[in-house]
Design a protein around this nucleic acid. Structure first.
Lengths: 110, 110
DNA sequence: GTTAGTACCTTGCTTTATGTAGTAGTGTGT
DNA sequence: ACACACTACTACATAAAGCAAGGTACTAAC
């Protein structure tokens, strides 16, 4: 899969998933990778960034069969950012679709 | 507009536009920029790359009011690459849409 | 005690695309 | 002569994102 496509998109994927239910990093890797491959080395720095920017808060819970999980919960600012990124993405992907389809059927070729 | 989103996408935009009718560089900048901002410094190296990789050929035509235009025409390989990139893009953007919508409605949160 | 799965984290590499700014030349209009 | 729109091109700087690889640590299974 084209790595370039992912640039900037994983941010909004993470925010979108966490927005619908608190998640821990390891879980996010598994869940998102079902659709778009993502590595731990990508997720953890991202989550730290989000936390530094005030988009999410964390809390720990015990895990049966492993070290404690660090759950991430979106803040209000995080939700706002998620909405904004999704809007940008939607606009962008529509623009691309316009370009790759709107040229069908010929043009005056001035 | 999120610069990161563009990564890797402009390739397929250029190929898609040229596929539907021969274009020259300056024209591509104008046309694509109607939807997604793109600079000359991005287009020309891209076109050169495509030519080097055998995805397009060029021919010159005179212009009314300016230097001659260098038109780009896709080769068969170029068309194949365009089809492939569009398929990849379509798959990718669908995956993103799945992620940002499929998490609505809650989950067991195990 | 060794392997494997869960879970967290960091460093540094690679990529590689995109944009800025500048060069150069043509034709039109004033 | 000068400015401006059209057209092509390039060198360098910017940007930052994502990944590979390595490290720590707990639990369970053999």
């Amino acid at each position: 899969m084209n790595v370039q496509f992912k640039k900037g998109v994983l941010d909004l994927c993470v925010l979108a998933v966490v927005a619908e239910g608190d998640c821990y990093g390891y879980e996010l890797v598994k869940r998102i990778s079902e659709n778009i491959e993502i590595a731990e080395g990508t997720i953890y720095p991202l989550l730290r960034k989000f936390q530094n920017e005030g988009y999410c808060e964390t809390y720990l819970t015990e895990s049966s069969g492993g070290p404690p999980r660090k759950y991430y919960r979106l803040t209000v600012a995080g939700r706002r950012m998620r909405d904004q990124l999704i809007a940008e993405w939607t606009k962008f992907s529509k623009s691309v679709d316009t370009i790759i389809t709107a040229n069908k059927g010929g043009r005056s070729n001035g």
